[in-house]
Simulated scan of single mutants.
Amino acid sequence: MPFRIGLTRDFLTDDGRVGWGDIGLAALDEAGDVTWDFIDTAEGDITPDAVRGYDALIVLTPRVTADTLKGADRLVLVARFGVGYDNVDVEACTRHGVLVTITPGGVRGPVSVAALTLLLAAAHRLGQKDRLVRTGRWNDKLAYMGTGVTGRTLGLIGWGNIGREVSRLCAPLGMRQLAADPYADPAKAAADGVTLTDLDTLLAEADFAVVTCALTPQTHHLLDAERLARMKPAAYLINVARGPIVDQVALTEALVAGRLAGAALDVFEVEPPDPADPLLALDNVLLSPHAIAWTDQLALGNGSAAIRSALDVAAGRVPAHPVNPEALDHPRLLARKVSR
């Protein structure tokens, strides 16, 4: 029986094209004893009926829940297209013998460049200057001086896969670099010219605070009103991680009150945000629809890595970057001879 792979339908545009461009699907066509297609789910929870008969799923935004797995008579892999897996019930997957993988190599470069893009755009007040031209206010430009980054302090909230790459990209800019991450290697940080510190110190000293940590129960509202109040009035907050890491109401209040110079956000507590959300009306905020890093390079990198995970499991190999390696001990995976 062929190994059957399903991709969530949100990879497709309304007219049936792969909206991401090349995501490496040729590798599936070239693989032996493998079939693939798109499941019926493009948003919301993936239903049990949608996954029945599939051995692996490649998932973009729909949710894999405990109920989803009730239909998973053959499922052994959920390969996330990206590094966040808050749309996957990992504990339920582990109980059912379903391995969950992510694609850190595919996102490292594009998301880090996106973080730098937002940082520089905020520092130069690009959004406001763009509106000056579009609204005929050319001569108001003296009221919108930017902030130079050389010699300023960069604070990285999370110094993992993406945080380290942001450090590398920013090194030529001559910024002092701080990072708050309890799991970071002090020796590696020192070698890269990064000072590890606690979060409160980082927020008090950073001119640009960049959120790159994962969303977990411990990091939900990590930046609440109290922590945001520690930031300098001239500082900027950039978030390319997950929206709920920041208390969005508290952030809005700080921006309205002038306790922060500005923010650049690719992610929100609720996505998409309510059009009436007062954050969207602020002049000192740059916004992107959780897509600032969406490039051809990210598409191919993520897609190829997720597909490689599926083909590895199909061949009885342990894939790279499992989130729940303990699932490898489950009888379902052992029966497929996928074991460590």
Score class of each variant (00 low, 15 high):
residue 42 A to E: 11
residue 19 G to P: 10
residue 32 G to F: 08
residue 38 F to L: 06
residue 61 T to M: 15
residue 49 D to M: 11
residue 47 T to K: 04
residue 52 R to C: 11
residue 54 Y to V: 10
residue 34 V to T: 09
residue 64 V to Y: 01
residue 20 W to Q: 12
residue 39 I to H: 00
residue 31 A to D: 02
residue 26 A to Y: 12
residue 62 P to G: 09
residue 53 G to M: 03
residue 33 D to G: 12
residue 39 I to E: 04
residue 49 D to T: 14
residue 35 T to L: 14
residue 32 G to Y: 06
residue 62 P to K: 02
residue 33 D to I: 13
residue 25 L to Q: 04
residue 51 V to H: 06
residue 58 I to V: 14
residue 52 R to D: 13
residue 56 A to V: 07
residue 60 L to S: 12
residue 48 P to Y: 03
residue 64 V to P: 03
residue 36 W to R: 08
residue 50 A to G: 05
residue 19 G to C: 08
residue 55 D to V: 06
residue 39 I to M: 04
residue 42 A to Y: 03
residue 46 I to Y: 00
residue 51 V to Y: 01
residue 34 V to F: 02
residue 31 A to V: 01
residue 61 T to N: 13
residue 58 I to L: 09
residue 22 D to V: 10
residue 42 A to G: 10
residue 51 V to W: 04
residue 27 A to Y: 01
residue 62 P to V: 09
residue 37 D to V: 13
residue 37 D to H: 11
residue 19 G to S: 07
residue 21 G to P: 01
residue 50 A to P: 02
residue 26 A to H: 13
residue 46 I to F: 00
residue 20 W to C: 12
residue 47 T to G: 09
residue 41 T to R: 07
residue 57 L to T: 01
residue 35 T to W: 09
residue 37 D to R: 13
residue 61 T to A: 15
residue 44 G to R: 01
residue 28 L to H: 08
residue 42 A to W: 05
residue 50 A to H: 03
residue 45 D to N: 14
residue 30 E to N: 13
residue 21 G to A: 02
residue 63 R to E: 11
residue 44 G to K: 03
residue 41 T to Q: 09
residue 57 L to C: 00
residue 61 T to W: 12
residue 26 A to F: 12
residue 20 W to H: 09
residue 32 G to M: 10
residue 38 F to N: 03
residue 38 F to P: 07
residue 33 D to M: 11
residue 49 D to L: 11
residue 27 A to C: 04
residue 29 D to M: 12
residue 45 D to K: 10
residue 40 D to C: 12
residue 44 G to L: 06
residue 40 D to S: 14
residue 24 G to K: 00
residue 31 A to T: 00
residue 51 V to N: 04
residue 61 T to I: 15
residue 24 G to E: 03
residue 20 W to E: 11
residue 39 I to N: 03
residue 31 A to S: 00
residue 26 A to I: 10
residue 28 L to Y: 04
residue 38 F to H: 03
residue 23 I to H: 01
residue 35 T to C: 11
residue 20 W to N: 09
residue 49 D to F: 10
residue 43 E to R: 15
residue 46 I to T: 07
residue 28 L to S: 07
residue 28 L to W: 01
residue 34 V to P: 02
residue 43 E to T: 14
residue 57 L to V: 06
residue 58 I to M: 05
residue 51 V to R: 04
residue 59 V to I: 13
residue 49 D to W: 08
residue 44 G to V: 07
residue 26 A to Q: 14
residue 58 I to F: 05
residue 26 A to C: 11
residue 25 L to Y: 00
